[in-house]
Amino acid sequence: MKKRLLALTLVLCMIFSLLAACGGDDTQADAVIYDYDYDLSEYIKIGEYKGIEYTPQELAVKEGDTVSVSYVGKIDGEEFEGGTGTNNNLVIGSGSFIDGFESGLVGAKAGEVRELNLAFPDPYENNPELAGMPVVFTATINSINGYTDEDEMNKAEIWQKYYDSCEVIKYPQKELDGMKEQQREYYESLAAAYGTDFDELLSAMSMTAEDFDAQIEEYAKSMIAQDMALYALARAEGIEADEESIEEAKQYVLEAQGVETEEELRDNYGIDFDDPSLANSIEMNAILQKTLDFLLENAEKAEPAE
């Protein structure tokens, strides 16, 4: 199977596409429920999933990493305009911040808070009034390359090895057609949001209709292959979503969409957890997380190189 880099929350791509396509639009087509409720052995041959060897890695900031960082800057103990940021993505070594900020984060772990005693450059073209002034930034590392702890990195490596060992026999037509239609609806809603039509959007993306169809088919096949690899393994080991894992998946959706309650989700996107498609995607994510836990528990740590 062709190798692809997989995010641990791969199923949330479906959730976010669903939310973006909704927004209270009653014209949305009937959604497909991706439960793969049939014998998957006709569609995919799963590989070995116990005893997968992985190399534990330390999750600490280094040059070239992309970190999500929140920070508060103070001059003489007082916050100042433009000195605060939340969940900013920063490539370490890019020179996006003043000298000492990025290098001061090297070695930090996810969740760590660092206090950086720095000074603005002189001259400082971005804000001449701050030129040469001492400043203290309190910076919190939210994630490193999308990960919040070492286990997430290890699970990603193990899942990738398992997934690469699987072999797709054929793709189920219902899910393939449904996912392609879902993607088309997403881009049509995107075009409407920009006040244009679908054909003009494709033109702006330098794509023909044939290019677009080929792209969404490739995407759909990639997602379906991942789904089938997940469900086939989960069923082989009797892994099912439970109340706790469902609630965790719901909370992740709320946080990712920047809302705190289901009511806010409904107000902003015209959808709630009773929606069959969203409920299906949340259940799938819950199964994914439990399956990743299972893979890690049954994996083998590689011996460190001498």
Results as ranks from 00 to 15, higher is better:
Gln215Met: 15
Gly146Tyr: 08
Ile287Arg: 01
Gln57Ile: 08
Ser70Gly: 08
Asp272Ile: 02
Ile44Gly: 00
Ile282Glu: 02
Ile169Gln: 00
Asp213Trp: 06
Glu152Met: 05
Asp39Glu: 07
Phe120Gly: 00
Pro121Met: 00
Glu188Ser: 10
Arg235Gly: 05
Ser245Met: 03
Leu19Phe: 01
Asn268Pro: 07
Gly83Pro: 09
Glu303Leu: 13
Leu105Pro: 02
Val106Arg: 02
Glu303Ala: 13
Glu58Pro: 07
Asn89Ala: 11
Tyr171Met: 09
Ala156Cys: 11
Glu102Asp: 08
Met133Asp: 08
Phe212Arg: 02
Asp164Leu: 12
Met207Arg: 03
Pro276Lys: 01
Asp227Trp: 15
Asp35His: 08
Phe212Asp: 02
Leu288Ala: 13
Ala302His: 06
Met153Ile: 08
Glu303Arg: 09
Met179His: 15
Lys3Met: 10
Ile216Trp: 04
Pro304Val: 01
Asp275Ile: 03
Glu181Asp: 13
Glu244Val: 12
Tyr194His: 13
Asn87Gly: 13
Gln289Gly: 03
Ser70Tyr: 04
Glu81Ser: 15
Ala156Trp: 00
Gly195Arg: 03
Asp76Met: 14
Asp26Glu: 14
Thr208Ala: 04
Ser143Tyr: 07
Phe294Ile: 05
Leu8Pro: 04
Leu296Met: 04
Ile92Met: 03
Leu12Ala: 07
Leu6Tyr: 14
Ile144Tyr: 02
Glu263Arg: 04
Lys62Cys: 10
Phe97Ile: 06
Thr86Ser: 15
Met284Ser: 12
Glu129Pro: 03
Ala209Arg: 15
Gln160Trp: 10
Asn117Leu: 08
Glu175Val: 14
Glu115Gln: 15
Thr84His: 15
Tyr231Met: 15
Leu296Lys: 01
Lys3Asn: 11
Glu262Lys: 01
Ser222Glu: 14
Asp213Pro: 07
Glu218Cys: 08
Asp164Glu: 15
Gly47Ala: 06
Ala232Asp: 06
Glu248His: 10
Lys45Cys: 11
Met14Ser: 11
Phe294Thr: 06
Ile92Cys: 03
Leu18Ile: 04
Ser143Met: 09
Leu8Arg: 01
